[in-house]
Design a protein around this nucleic acid. Structure first.
Length: 121
RNA sequence: UUGGCAGGCCUCCUUAUCGCUCUGCUUUUAGUAGAGAGGAAAGUCCGGACACCACAGCGCAGCAUAGCGGGUAACGCCCGUCGCCCUGAUUUUUUCGGGGUAGGACUAGUGCAACAGAAAGCAAGUACAGUUCGGCUGUAGUGAAAUCAGGUAAACUCUAUGCGGUGAAACGCCAUGUAAACCAACGUUAAGGGUAGCGCGCCCAUGUUGGCGGGUAGGCGGAUAGAAUACUGUAGUAAUGCAGUGUCCAGAUUAAUGAUAAGGCACGACAGAAUCCGGCUUACGGCCUGCUUUUUUA
RNA sequence: GGGUCAUUAACUCAGUUGGUUCAGAGUGUCGCCUUGACAGGGCGGAAGUCAUUGGUUCGAAUCCAAUAUGACCCA
């Protein structure tokens, strides 16, 4: 069992788990991003996705997913970050290639709403 | 100096911090060391390896290829060579250089041929001339092609050669217990099912039908050392083969290469592995070598 | 990962033994007529490298190959 005090990150791998997340989770949208999340107690599980229809080339999709991972890493390393648990999947919905700075505000906003869902009633 | 063609090579580099995937070691909270996309990884146009269906057999159908010789595991790929076509030099021919070429057979059969033309093929026959007086010969005229064994097969077709099908989401193993589960009925050598176009043949009593139970996109294998690659020698015009020595070079499975700071230069194009190889095609930045062309100077 | 189709005027579509008659139809668009004016109607016109490139052929929208774009199917 993972320790709850550590901010362990698990890759969302199971297709079954992702399907239940999309069917029963909460959906939040913010500018170029969309978050599908749920409340859990076994650490933090994350996944990142880009539509193949919006970006036909694999190079662009890889680039966006790397930028999103990098931005989440930066947020997690900052001082104001508070550890919480759950399952989340972040999707990029815009049509233009983003920069790292452009992802900071929407992702912070999505994480704040997710955390309020976890800590709320 | 400009452009083109052919061949070869490279695909930003260095340092620091944080972070990702795999492997080894220490220890199992974690730490540490090493490795980490391409020439096209792409399109999926061909050929194979591999797996299952009978270690895939025979015939028909179907598909593919097409001078000749060689290379290869194999090919529709590659090399050499002949013919044909285009182009340049020389120029009467000839010869030489470069490029292209699906290039078997209309003396097996069938079909097609606009316009023009007498006539485009079971024939018919214009004008003029010749004549051995035989609708025999020649010329003219139309056309891409005109009794010439006519043209056309990237028309059907024929000949030769090759090809069984499916496709890693194949396939094997594991789970709590069988992994071809169990029960009932039917059937008794005939019918049915299995091979995914058809027939034969082959296989199945572990059959067919119904009922009931378990599992369900969970995990492991397949899965990365190979028709691999570098150098040297050697056979060959070449493609390529053989021998010796050395090297290990991604292995993910919502799917790993990024961010920040500093410096340098050519200021970074096309673009991201998903079972693996050999080719083809397409996209695209730079350097070197050889040939050719334009301009300037002598 | 594997397969099957399609592309013709601004739009929706026809176009087969390749052929002077093959580049057409409807809607739209433009001009004229009809009306005091409009709608409607009538007459006439323009609009196309047949997706791109190459090949076969005397001749290609049509046959062959490659490329580009779009759609769909298996899971």
């Amino acid at each position: 069992m993972f320790s709850k005090t550590k901010n362990e990150i698990v890759h969302l791998k199971s297709k079954k788990e992702i399907e239940t997340l999309f069917a029963a989770g909460n959906h939040f949208g913010k500018a170029p991003l969309k978050l599908v999340c749920s409340v859990g107690d076994k650490g933090l599980g994350l996944g990142f996705g880009v539509s193949k229809r919006l970006f036909p080339r694999a190079v662009d999709r890889n680039r966006i997913k790397r930028l999103m991972r990098e931005q989440f890493k930066l947020i997690r390393a900052s001082e104001e970050y508070v550890v919480f648990c759950g399952r989340g999947f972040i999707i990029y919905t815009a049509k233009e290639l983003p920069t790292l700075d452009a992802l900071e505000k929407p992702m912070k906003e999505l994480i704040r709403r997710w955390r309020s869902l976890v800590e709320g009633p």
